[in-house]
Design a protein around this nucleic acid. Structure first.
Lengths: 223, 223
DNA sequence: CCGCATCCGTTTCGATACTG
DNA sequence: CAGTATCGAAACGGATGCGG
């Protein structure tokens, strides 16, 4: 049963927390920032959440207009959750929380890392040269496919199959994070089989190995 | 006993929530945004929190370097809590949450409103003319005193007795909120005794009754 | 009063099992 | 795959007590 306790506080900050302050709520929002996900995708991305809790949170966020459940047309025959316009307006807040959280040490093992987290990190940490030619990448992580586009010095990430990728990469979130923070090289990761690469290798290296304005390598993850 | 559960997620967003995601934590931060408060001040500001919970949260925030306990020198002989530098960096996030929370309807009665909440609203919603002469105000709310200064089109609020106030106002947070959102006039509130005013009345009206462009607000009560 | 600590009933959370 | 059902553990909330 979805919880509905309130702070009983008229302050808008408290009212926001009445909606997104419950456990897991903002992490569900994080997972949906790059596109719709299915129930089971969310479970894989948030292994700590139990199924009934995830159900409760989704219902609660839905009832508050943050998340919306959509049933896809017959060929897919599946239901996905995605953010409403209101939910998308939480994005700067969630990302700012991530910026603040960089200073917080990693929790003790076992530690998980979702594809969305690393891709948000990718999007926020890469600053390709504005003169560089646009490129499109196909990323496969946790059995899901993302489209990554670089253009005008910006990186864009969204869920789904790219139309005409220049290069492709299949790996796990943790390895991708290591590539992004420079603790392993693309070449090394290929030889160990941790990543599988296809297409324009140089373009991939431009995306992954350009750590302009990289402050400190290490545990910088997810924002 | 202070709680210490973690999301077990390497993402910086999750790590931030490991620290400030527990119930009441961000509201404690909100209360400290305008200056140090004592344990009992916090209890008055957050009537829903039980004493042991407040103790736990303060200890937890302290151990994570967000809040610091300070013991005041003998004349005061009291201990106060205030934000560390790290804690103060949560301010834009907390205020942004407030901006988002404006759309969330008020919870069912009984609804409380803290002095800090309204003063954050005051600070965020007033935009005095940059040409207007600087003014200093003494606000007394919930038996605490704040200094409010307007200067160069900005409003500054901090805890404590002002040095040389132009005007003073004593009322309760809820009435001040009504003054700020225009649902009652200063004149009316004076006749009912809901506010007590002293000093330069015109300066007070300039501060309270100038609702030009009151958009960005951290703690606006709304509706 | 202030700053807690302790006790205790209630709610929420988390894990596992199970169903359409 | 997308959830329910159930149950023990933990967190929360209220009341009371206790030393400054």
């Amino acid at each position: 049963m979805p919880t509905s306790r309130t702070y009983g506080d008229a302050c808008a900050i408290a009212r926001a927390l009445d909606v997104v302050g419950e456990r897991w709520a903002l992490l569900v929002v994080r997972e949906l920032l790059l596109g719709p996900q299915r129930f089971s995708d969310l479970r894989r991305a948030l292994p700590g959440v139990s199924s009934n809790m995830l159900t409760d949170r989704l219902r609660e966020l839905e009832s508050h207009g943050v998340v919306r459940q959509r049933r896809l047309p017959p060929p897919a025959a599946s239901t996905v959750y995605d953010l409403t316009a209101s939910g998308r307006e939480l994005e700067p807040i969630v990302l700012a929380l991530g910026g603040w959280g960089l200073r917080v040490p990693l929790p003790p093992a076992p530690v998980h890392l979702s594809a969305t987290s690393v891709l948000l990190f990718l999007r926020g940490s890469r600053h390709p040269s504005p003169q560089a030619p646009p490129a499109t990448y196909r990323f496969e992580l946790d059995n899901r496919v993302w489209t990554v586009r670089t253009r005008d010095g910006q990186v864009h990430v969204e869920a789904g199959e790219p139309a005409d990728p220049d290069a492709g990469l299949r790996t796990d979130p943790s390895t991708l994070n290591s590539l992004l923070d420079g603790s392993i090289s693309l070449a090394t990761a290929r030889t160990t089989g941790a990543v599988v690469v296809s297409g324009d290798d140089a373009a991939l290296r431009r995306l992954l190995e350009t750590r302009a304005g990289d402050r400190r390598s290490g545990a910088r993850v997810g924002a």
